[in-house]
């Protein structure tokens, strides 16, 4: 299978730099798969999962928003924070989810409410990725 160069970068570290066969990311309008020779595109990503297929195996990572730029044989994902699914701390994510659920009910204004919603989305995305099982 033909591959392309995938770079996943954050302000703190280079998260991934290597060949990939396919990636699936989440955008506002749904999931988006990218293969080699994809037309030049810029996509805005939502908080969610980034799946990378390299050497025949799928890996899953949590991505905190950002965007993706594709060229024919080069894809770059810019995100502020990324972690592999096996790096996710499930207990911490659960605690964050409970806290966010509690805070949403007690937020004083729209701005606070929105902030808590974001942290709820982040913790739920982490939990989903952590517990996701794939068939091959």
């Amino acid at each position: 299978m033909s591959t392309f160069l995938l770079e996943v970068i954050t302000p703190e570290k280079q998260f991934y730099n290597g060949d990939a066969e396919e990636i699936i990311c989440e955008t506002e309008t749904g999931q988006l798969a990218v293969l080699r020779e994809h037309a030049p595109m810029i996509a805005s990503l939502v908080v969610g999962e980034l799946r990378i297929k390299a050497e025949g195996a799928w890996k899953s990572a949590y991505v905190e928003g950002g965007f993706m730029e594709t060229e024919r044989d080069h894809v770059t994902v810019f995100s502020e924070f990324c972690e592999w699914s096996d790096e996710i701390d499930e207990a911490k994510a659960l605690a964050e989810k409970e806290k966010a659920l509690h805070n949403i009910k007690h937020s004083a204004n729209i701005k606070e409410h929105r902030e808590h919603e974001i942290s709820l989305a982040r913790s739920m995305a982490r939990l989903k990725i952590k517990n996701h099982k794939y068939n091959g």
Binding site: T27, E28, T29, L32, A39, P40, M41, I42, A43, S44, L45, G65, G66, F67
Partner: peptide, 13 residues
């Protein structure tokens, strides 16, 4: 360039 979903949203991100 293709923008997903649209230029403005990408830019705002």
């Amino acid at each position: 360039l293709i923008y997903e979903p649209d230029p403005e949203q990408v830019y705002n991100e």
